[in-house]
Write a protein that binds this DNA or RNA. Structure first.
Length: 490
RNA sequence: GGCGCAUUCGUCUAGCGGCCCAGGACGCCGCCCUCUCAAGGCGGAGAUCAGGGGUUCGAAUCCCCUAUGCGCUACCA
């Protein structure tokens, strides 16, 4: 087993985290737990313009919902803090000064307008858009003038003009780019905040991160980071670039693709352990057949070597299947009830009295377990258990096999027999009704169908006798009485 | 445009030179079970392993080229 790793999840608080971000968090967390290392949460709030109020909360909430606990970071602190980059500005400033004194960087006074124009011109000429390095060669006098104009400069890195930069990525292997394809990227913005490149390299080093596990979209900027590590004299961590999660159009998954925020999955009634299981399988696999894993099993088996390299489309159908599977095979009836209850509170009509009868709800859950795929389906699937007066049309009750008179006669007989029996168990009920079917010369299909509508108001419901037992004698008699009246009164 | 990365059933994937005329899962279709709906069981269709060249006795697996897709190319991360 590999030694204890220090890994980090470093989101920026720009919105609700989507499944792609969270998959990255999950892989980092799994690796930390697998190796007995630390999982660090660092907030990359270096772009003042893009910070969204509440985003931090939804990040923390998402992680907590999944049970991805962090060893260092917001709320828990840690020996390498602060864990908000906006509180580490002095560190970046100091290191930038050091780079300045060793002539690795320079101040750039170019206006956004000039840069913009330059890029447009380059694009027009079909050239790669790159900073042209104008300020790299400023004389002392020109620098003074730049300062004198009151322009707040940015600090740019002096990318070597020649040579190549290589690094080894655990997933991709050796990667080499010519330095000439890189430009003098910005390290410190004019507002004094660092860019991702600077802050990341510094923090990962200072926080003693051993493995950088991040999405593949960062692969292209990694050579810049390697240049920085070298200039700073830092040893770079192990690089692990994770395959992207794609939308149905094979483009990088984004809000554009609809429900992608983890919070939405929670609200839609997915189980957190299902999200973990499913997300783990997006880009990672264990063997040729196993795909249902408990969190502990994932921690035990998770290995960097088994991370794939191709982007994966998020398959909602399979997620839904897995959610149903967990509910019927991995949850006890009692556990299921605990999960569904909040959705019932919220979704059942207001006329259903609260609080619900716990024993009754648990009986219902047993019948729901094989049928529910989303917790949010709870109210719709069980509503008829809670409503005294069912709403259904007479033709629904009659179906294809009965006319009013016949149905009324049958139901009256059932009513009479039902009020007589003591034992209201599934078995007794079934025995009784089957005997009746024979007695009346009815096919069980049509007879039970009639009763089903009378008791549930629906043509599709859980098994009839279990349903009757759960409802109990009193409710059943009330419902059958109503169905008879309905036929009688028209 | 430049640079980088990738390419196995519709989708997620297994496969790291012979066990593969390619295995599993979701979805789809059929049958069985059955009081409806589910669940479950069984079976089926579905991938000339992007295409073309090599290397090798032998390639999905190694090498080269092409095509396609994606990512990056900001004082965003």
């Amino acid at each position: 087993m590999p030694g204890p790793a220090r890994v980090r999840y470093a989101p920026s608080p720009t919105g609700e985290p989507h499944v792609g971000n969270i998959r990255t968090a999950l892989f980092n967390w799994l690796y930390a737990r697998h190796t007995g290392g630390q999982f660090i949460l660092r907030i990359e709030d270096t772009d003042q313009n893009r910070i969204v109020p509440g985003a931090l909360d939804s990040i923390l909430e998402s992680l907590r919902w999944l049970g991805l606990d962090w060893d260092e970071g917001p709320e828990v602190g840690g020996p390498y803090g602060p864990y908000f980059q906006s509180q580490r500005l002095h560190i970046y400033r100091e290191i930038a000064d050091r780079l300045l004194s060793q002539d690795s960087v320079y101040s750039c006074y170019c206006s956004p307008e000039r840069l913009d124009e330059m890029r447009k011109e380059q694009q027009r000429r079909k050239e790669p858009p790159k900073y042209d390095g104008q300020c790299r060669y400023l004389s002392e006098a020109e620098k003074k003038r730049g300062v004198g104009d009151g322009v707040n400069p940015v600090v740019r890195f002096k990318t070597p003009l020649e040579g190549h930069t290589s690094f080894y990525d655990l997933i991709r292997g050796e990667i080499t780019v010519a330095n000439s394809t890189l430009d003098d990227f910005v390290l410190l913005k004019s507002d004094g905040f660092p860019t991702y490149h600077l802050a990341n390299v510094i923090d990962d080093h200072l926080m003693e991160i051993t493995h950088i596990m991040r999405a593949d979209e960062w692969l292209a900027s990694t050579p810049r980071h390697m240049l920085l590590y070298r200039a700073l004299g830092f040893e770079p961590p192990v690089m692990v670039h994770l395959p992207l999660i794609l939308g149905p159009d094979r483009a990088k998954l984004s809000k554009r693709h609809g429900a992608t925020s983890l919070v939405e999955y929670k609200e839609n009634g997915f189980l957190p352990e299902v999200m973990i299981n499913f997300l783990a399988l997006l880009g990672w696999s264990f063997d040729e057949k196993t795909e249902i894993f408990s969190v502990d099993e994932l921690i035990e088996h998770f290995a960097l070597e088994r991370i794939g390299k191709t982007g994966a489309i998020f398959n909602h159908e399979k997620l839904l299947w897995m959610n149903g599977l967990y509910m019927r095979e991995r949850l006890t009836v009692h556990d299921l009830m605990g999960r569904v209850l909040p959705f019932l509170e919220q979704g059942l009509p207001p006329e259903v009295p609260r609080p619900f009868d716990g024993a009754y709800v648990e009986d219902i859950m047993a019948l729901l377990q094989d049928r529910i795929k989303l917790l949010s389906e709870g109210p719709e699937l069980t509503e008829f258990f809670f409503m005294d007066d069912l709403e259904y049309e007479t033709p629904t009750l009659l179906g294809k096999d009965f006319d009013r008179e016949r149905a009324e006669g049958i139901l009256s007989l059932v009513q009479a027999r039902l009020s007589d029996i003591e034992d209201f168990s599934t078995e007794a009920l079934e025995g009784m009704t089957r005997r009746m079917a024979e007695e009346l010369g009815l096919k069980t299909g049509s007879f039970f169908g009639l009763l089903r509508v009378a008791f549930t108001g629906r043509t599709a419901a859980p098994p009839l006798f279990e349903t009757m037992e759960a409802l109990g004698k009193e409710r059943c008699l009330y419902r059958i009485e109503r169905s008879i009246r309905k036929l009688h009164d028209g």
